[in-house]
């Protein structure tokens, strides 16, 4: 038998999992997670999570896109091949603006999506909880808390007791 991954407990509605998360948080666990079919308002705070870092990556992407656009148009029009078209200057931020603007949005989108995947460590097609038969309902209509065995406070018996006390149902250990 392989090493245990952690303990999973099920909850039936948002209020139950909300309160259970607060209890697990207050018990001092760090390596744990809530699995829910949809994002629940306020659950981040109940789990003690901080604001997401995605916006920082997005901002970098946006600035990079804007600079790319401006640089591209400046270099092609005013440095590499100077050509007068329509009596307009070789380079002006005016006509360079639309494309720089589009590129900043494009790069922001890429940075946001890739950043989200990176921060979430996705794609990850294999994960211990995905093997759990009851897990199928986590994407539909049931709520779960998983406390991982790697958590320093993890203790099979005590952790299970905490989840029982928090109102968890169908508590089982999952293998890694």
């Amino acid at each position: 038998m392989s090493k245990a991954y952690g303990i999973i407990a099920a909850f039936d509605d948002t209020r139950e999992i909300f309160q259970a998360c607060e209890q697990v948080r207050d018990a001092g666990y760090t390596q744990w997670d809530a699995l829910t079919p949809f994002p629940i308002h306020g659950l981040d705070r109940a789990m003690g999570l901080r604001r997401s870092k995605v916006p920082r990556l997005s901002l970098i992407g946006g600035i990079a896109g804007f600079c790319t656009g401006m640089a591209l148009i400046w270099w092609t029009g005013a440095a590499d091949f100077r050509l007068i078209v329509g009596g307009k200057p070789y380079f002006s931020p005016m006509f360079a603006f639309p494309i720089s603007y589009e590129l900043s949005i494009l790069f922001t989108a890429f940075a946001t999506i890739l950043g989200m995947f990176f921060l979430n460590r996705l794609p990850m097609h294999y994960h211990p909880v995905l093997k759990q038969p009851q897990f199928a309902r986590a994407t539909s209509d049931r709520f779960f808390i998983v406390i991982e065995a790697t958590d320093p406070k993890f203790d099979a018996a005590r952790t299970r007791a905490l989840l029982v006390q928090a109102g968890g149902k169908d508590i089982v250990e999952i293998e890694g």
Binding site: A34, T112, L130
Partner: peptide, 26 residues
């Protein structure tokens, strides 16, 4: 992508979704 509804994921996911909404508007 191996999505499992983790709330740690939802947090980043919702933020990313909001940003995408925010940039899609302009």
């Amino acid at each position: 992508m191996g999505w499992r509804g983790s709330n740690r994921h939802w947090r980043n996911y919702e933020m990313a979704y909001l940003i995408l909404a925010g940039i899609s508007t302009p």
